[in-house]
C-alpha cells in the first residue's frame, strides 16, 4: 500500500513539474524582474562606477530579458541593462575617436582612417543597444513620443526619462556610425516630445536639455521663438544644483558641436565648479558620473586635437591657449647681469 502511495505521489509530482515548468519560470522571472527593478537598478544608480554598470548591463540584461519568452514583463530592468550595455560600446567608440585624433595630429593617415572605421563600428553597436532600450520604453509606455503624454506612475518616471534619453542616443550614435544601425530618424522628435511630459526641474533639468539637444541636432525642429541657449543654461543650472549634471554635459556637447569654443569653455568650467561645490546626489551617482564622463570626452577631444593627448585626470579642464612668444619679455629688461 505504502509503495502505491509513494509511487502515486512521485508520479503526480513529475506530472505537475513538467506541466508547471512554465509557471515556475514565470515565478522565477517575476522574482528576478521584481528584484532587478527594486534593488539591482537602484543599487547601480547609486554607484558611480560606470564600467561596472555597463558590464552588469551586458551580463545581466540578456538573462533578465530572456524571461520575456515565458511572458514575464521585464521592460524596465531590461531597459536599464541595455542602456548600460550601450555605455560600454560608447566608451569604446570614444577611445577609437581619440586614437583617430592623435593620428591626425601625428600625420598618420592610415592609422587615422582605421581608427575612424573602428569608431563607426562601436557607434553602430551603441546605436543598436540604445535603440533596444528605446524600443523597451515604447513597449512599457505606449504612446511615448506621441502628441499626448502617456500615463506614467510616479516610481517609473525615471525609467521614462531614461527611455527618452535612449531614443536620442540611439539616433546620435547611428548617425556617427554612418547609419549602419538603421535607427529611424523619427525617433528624434519623438524623444523630444517624450521629454516634455516630465517636470524638468524635478529631473535635474534633463528633460529640457534633451529637448534642446534634439532641436540643435535637427535645425528647424524647435517651436517658434524658442531660445535654445537659454533653455540649456537654465537646465544645466538645475542639474548643477541637484548634483546630477547630465544637463550640463548635454550643454557642453551642444556648444562643442556648434563650434562655440568660448561657450564650451564656460560650460566646462561651470561643470567643474559644480562638482567641487555640490556632491553627487546620493541615489543618482551613476547618472552624475555619466554626465562627467560625457564632458570629459569633450575635454579630451579638445586636448587631443591641440596637444596630441587627453586632458588631466580627475578634473575637467580645457587646455590653455599658448602664450604669445615674447609677450612679457619687457619684464626681463636689465636682468642680464650677475645676480
Amino acid at each position: 500500500m505504502a509503495r502505491f502511495v509513494v509511487s502515486g505521489l512521485l508520479l503526480s509530482l513529475v506530472v505537475s513539474l513538467s506541466g508547471c515548468s512554465g509557471f515556475i519560470y514565470r515565478q522565477t522571472g517575476d522574482t528576478l524582474g521584481g528584484f532587478a527593478k527594486a534593488h539591482m537598478v537602484p543599487w547601480l544608480m547609486a554607484n558611480e562606477d560606470i564600467g561596472l554598470a555597463c558590464r552588469t548591463g551586458g551580463a545581466v540584461g540578456p538573462l533578465v530579458r530572456s524571461f520575456e519568452r515565458v511572458d514575464v514583463h521585464t521592460e524596465l530592468p531590461s531597459m536599464v541593462s541595455w542602456l548600460g550595455a550601450g555605455m560600454c560600446a560608447e566608451a569604446s567608440a570614444w577611445e577609437a575617436e581619440l586614437t583617430n585624433l592623435r593620428a591626425i595630429k601625428a600625420g598618420q593617415a592610415s592609422v587615422a582612417k582605421d581608427a575612424a572605421l573602428l569608431e563607426e563600428r562601436h557607434h553602430r553597436v551603441a546605436a543598436m543597444r540604445f535603440g533596444v532600450a528605446w524600443g523597451l520604453a515604447v513597449a512599457k509606455f505606449p504612446g511615448i513620443g506621441g502628441d499626448k503624454c502617456p500615463e506614467i506612475a510616479a516610481d517609473e518616471e525615471v525609467y521614462y526619462l531614461l527611455g527618452a534619453a535612449a531614443g536620442l542616443l540611439s539616433v546620435l550614435h547611428d548617425r556617427a556610425s554612418g547609419g549602419a544601425a538603421n535607427i529611424d530618424t523619427r525617433v528624434l522628435p519623438m524623444a523630444a516630445r517624450a521629454a516634455k511630459c516630465l517636470n524638468s526641474e524635478k529631473w535635474w533639468g534633463v528633460p529640457t536639455a534633451l529637448q534642446a539637444s534634439v532641436w540643435m541636432t535637427v535645425p528647424g525642429s524647435a517651436p517658434k521663438g524658442t531660445n535654445i541657449a537659454k533653455q540649456f543654461s537654465e537646465a544645466a543650472a538645475q542639474g548643477d544644483k541637484a548634483g546630477v549634471r547630465l544637463a550640463r554635459a548635454l550643454q557642453v556637447l551642444a556648444l562643442e558641436g556648434a563650434g562655440d569654443a568660448k561657450g564650451m569653455k564656460a560650460a566646462v568650467q561651470a561643470h567643474q565648479a559644480s562638482i567641487v561645490k555640490t556632491p553627487s546626489a546620493k541615489h543618482w551617482r551613476l547618472l552624475d558620473t555619466y554626465g562627467r564622463t560625457m564632458t570629459q570626452q569633450a575635454v579630451d577631444r579638445t586636448w587631443t586635437r591641440e596637444k596630441g593627448h587627453r586632458g588631466p585626470t580627475g578634473t575637467l579642464e580645457l587646455p590653455e591657449k599658448a602664450p604669445v612668444p615674447g609677450q612679457d619679455d619687457d619684464m626681463l629688461g636689465g636682468l642680464d647681469g650677475d645676480g
Binding site: A103, A112, L172, A176, G178, M216, V218, G257, A258
Partner: peptide, 18 residues
C-alpha cells in the same frame, strides 16, 4: 546644420585623414 555631430562634419573628418 547639426554641427560637429552631423553627417557633413563626419565626412569632413574622413577628408581630413585623406
Amino acid at each position: 546644420p547639426s554641427g560637429a555631430h552631423g553627417d557633413i562634419f563626419k565626412f569632413a573628418k574622413s577628408y581630413q585623414a585623406a
